[in-house]
Amino acid sequence: MNENAQAVFNRPQLFGEAVTHYCPGCAHGIIHRMVAEVLEELGIEGRTVGIAPVGCAVLIYNYIQTDFIEALHGRAPAFATGLKRVSPDLIVFTYQGDGDLASIGTNEIIHAANRGEKFTTIFVNNAIYGMTGGQMAPTTMPGQITATSPHGRNVKECGYPIRIAELLSSLRTPAYIERVAVYNPQNIVRAKRAIRKAFQYQIEGRCFSLVEVLSTCPTNWGMTPQESLKWQETTMLPYYPLGCFKTPEGEVKE
């Protein structure tokens, strides 16, 4: 590279220097980078406090260089509620997986959203429990084989996967709720746009904001990283439609 080479894409500074512990091809890395980019671009990293989940992403605080608090499993929205209520000038976000938010933590996320707590949630849905070794999650797809659904998720026994974005957008309290994906560059661009929008609503003190990001788990899905993105597109996408489900501007239908 000669001297007038000029970088048009850099690893964001806020992403830190550590090599992540995530498996090769795990989309957590992409989502972490986007959150770091958005915080930097909005210039709010100095007053942001992240709430880490229990799950693969618990170690997010080794990567994103803001203040962090480690929440108990599923309780990040309660941590965020307490923090944001007493220190409203902080930008507070929770970063949670589907085991954390859609299983043990549904009560916390539903009530935080319903109270209209002014923090942002990045909800990473990869249809499985990653850290504990690939067990079935509430978001696991029908027929999907996991460590605890060896013959494929049987909807007659375990019911259907929970659609968090739709569930939360049925609440009457104004909020910003969007579902995005990362299975190709085009969707990554859209995902980052949604994440930025969520943090902007928080900066304005406007409403609760949640972005559900369809993600992957190559290791526990038993696929290569590339196949995982394909599976996300072909299997998860039809069941988890992308799009904006709710914005505070949208009039709230009775």
């Binding site: 080479a5 970088a7 894409f9 690893r11 090769p24 992409i30």
Partner: peptide, 29 residues
């Protein structure tokens, strides 16, 4: 062509994209 797609999809922030003057502006990220 400096389109940055490789850097976008990289989960580990391993890729830096450089250009000399001209920039590929089909999308902003």
């Amino acid at each position: 062509i400096g389109c940055r797609i490789c850097a976008l999809v990289c989960p580990d922030g391993a890729i830096t994209v450089v250009s000399h003057g001209q920039r590929y502006e089909l999308y902003d990220y």
